[in-house]
Design a binder for these strands. Sequence first.
DNA 1: TGAATAAATAAGCAATCACTTATATAATGA
DNA 2: TCATTATATAAGTGATTGCTTATTTATTCA
Lengths: 109, 109
Amino acid sequence: MDYVYMESYLKAISDHNRMLILKYLSKDSLCICEFTELLDMTQPAVSQHMRKLKIAELVTEEKRGRWTIWSLNVRHALYPMLIHLLSLLPEPEITVESLEAEGKRVVCE
Amino acid sequence: MDYVYMESYLKAISDHNRMLILKYLSKDSLCICEFTELLDMTQPAVSQHMRKLKIAELVTEEKRGRWTIWSLNVRHALYPMLIHLLSLLPEPEITVESLEAEGKRVVCE
DNA sequence: TGAATAAATAAGCAATCACTTATATAATGA
DNA sequence: TCATTATATAAGTGATTGCTTATTTATTCA
């Protein structure tokens, strides 16, 4: 673990919207369209955040039909530290459950 | 601990030179002029890094004569996590001891 | 008082940031 | 085949980043 790697890892986390994304992912695997609802953000904005998280190896993706399901990369060396960090952050107001109540939760297939 | 506070804290850490500074400070309190030697960096560059760390409450300063002695802020809520993070990073090649050997270590007064 | 030293601040610059809107790609299903 | 849906990519924008050089402030000491 060198300084430059740690820098790019921390830079990937150092954004409140990406931290929110990671907080959600620590409970559920989710797709882009769900994040657009959860974060009230445009689809390209979410997509570009996911790309940054992916480049930093913080998340993994799994294509399923026309959806891409994103998950936390539990194999990452810094995964335990990430989980601890996320535990310090409050639960988001908009929950995946509230999305389900509105019928906006995507159930793939 | 809200998302925006965590973001500014992480952004303050997310620079390889500032991580080096913090790594050094985890062993010794040091002044700007020592960092210019340790990091091979200009004095204003170091000074501006210290200001960022200070704004994020990661470090404390103590004026002593014409020197300003910088230390890690051990009272910060995230200090334990910072120490853990720094422990994952390698020891810098240039050490405070090697500075002393060259007679470049400042002994205030 | 005045030279030397430590540190802070200012201004400028190229690179990167998080976003936007527009468009492209890819899969589904009528 | 063609409209719809999910996602990715492209291009542009204003703000911020980490540095630079130049200057200022503050302290020490001869």
